[in-house]
């Protein structure tokens, strides 16, 4: 069927390619992710190689980002750290956004008691102090990438749920939704085809913010000894380690911080571009 509309995915990709910041961000992100993935190959040192004769060295040709207080090569550790940070960031953002969207969509669409119930659950989830919960959870689970992502995801769906509920609540009374109901569409179809695609903006924004947030949360968990354990580096715990020497050895803060900043920015621009690409009303044909 050649005169069928282009497949939505192809159309979205075509639109995304026109969005320059998003494409630049995508390339930057892919380069960083690939470099981190290839860390064992391209890293100049083992990530835990201690060199007590060369501690806290400033960046040089031998150590592109300098060394830390055990003389370990920071460039190597940033590369290794990225593997875990990026993975946790994306996994937990997907999980948290997915859960939040589901809860928000159900609450907003069905309203009434279901809405009250789900929103009270959301309020309770907001109110639970994260730290005790984490300590309990951590004592039952092994601190690995997967469990970290699950824990962070479970702690970060509430914002998305509230935003999505609000969007769905207003879209539920949109005339085109009533039209779909008049056609005999099922609730699943109405939510999936007509409501959520029109609520994609806040969902994507929430997801991109969640990536950056997850990287930060992971670092605080690691600091408490609940996250990924040293000597395995993550961007979060690299930053955490550097806090005491920020004034004297700024590179130890700057480089991991820069890594987080670049990735979070890239994801945000990508989200921005995705939002535009998903909206046909802004499309030029």
């Amino acid at each position: 069927m050649t005169d069928e509309p282009r497949s939505p995915a192809a159309e979205i990709w075509r639109q995304l390619r026109r969005h320059k910041p998003a494409m630049v961000s995508l390339v930057v992100f892919l380069v960083i992710a690939a470099a981190c993935l290839a860390a064992p190959v391209i890293a100049p040192y083992p990530f835990d190689a201690i060199n007590l004769t060369g501690i806290r060295q400033a960046p040089s040709l031998h150590h592109l980002m300098g060394t830390d207080d055990l003389g370990r090569d920071l460039f190597t550790r940033v590369l290794y750290g990225g593997r875990i940070s990026i993975l946790i960031g994306i996994l937990s953002a997907v999980l948290g956004t997915g859960l939040g969207t589901l809860v928000g969509a159900l609450a907003g669409y069905y309203g009434g008691r279901i809405d009250s119930l789900l929103m009270r659950v959301t309020d309770v989830a907001y109110a639970i102090p994260a730290l005790p919960l984490l300590i309990v959870l951590a004592s039952y689970t092994q601190a690995g990438v997967g469990s970290m992502a699950v824990i962070i995801g479970l702690l970060s769906w509430m914002g998305t749920a509230r935003v999505v509920r609000g969007e769905v609540l207003s879209l539920r009374s949109a005339v085109f939704v009533e039209a779909a109901r008049a056609l005999g569409a099922s609730s699943g179809r109405i939510i999936g085809r007509h409501i959520l695609p029109n609520a994609v903006g806040p969902i994507v924004v929430g997801a991109t913010l969640a990536v950056g947030n997850a990287i930060i949360v992971e670092s605080s968990l690691s600091f408490l000894g609940l996250g990924v354990q040293p000597p395995i580096p993550t961007w979060g715990n690299l930053l955490q380690d550097a806090t005491s020497t920020m004034a004297t050895n700024p590179w130890l803060t700057i480089f991991p911080g820069l890594a987080i900043l670049v990735v979070v920015l890239a994801v945000n621009f990508l989200g921005d571009g995705l939002q535009d690409a998903l909206d046909p009303t802004g499309r030029s044909t």
């Binding site: 509309p5 009533e178 039209a179 779909a180 056609l183 005999g184 085809r193 695609p197 998903l278 009303t281």
Partner: peptide, 20 residues
């Protein structure tokens, strides 16, 4: 307001056929 802005016209007209 009565047409979903994110769906091309062909799919809008086709939707009732898909549903039923």
């Amino acid at each position: 307001a009565s047409l979903n802005p994110r769906i091309p016209v062909g799919r809008i007209v086709r939707e009732p056929l898909d549903i039923h």
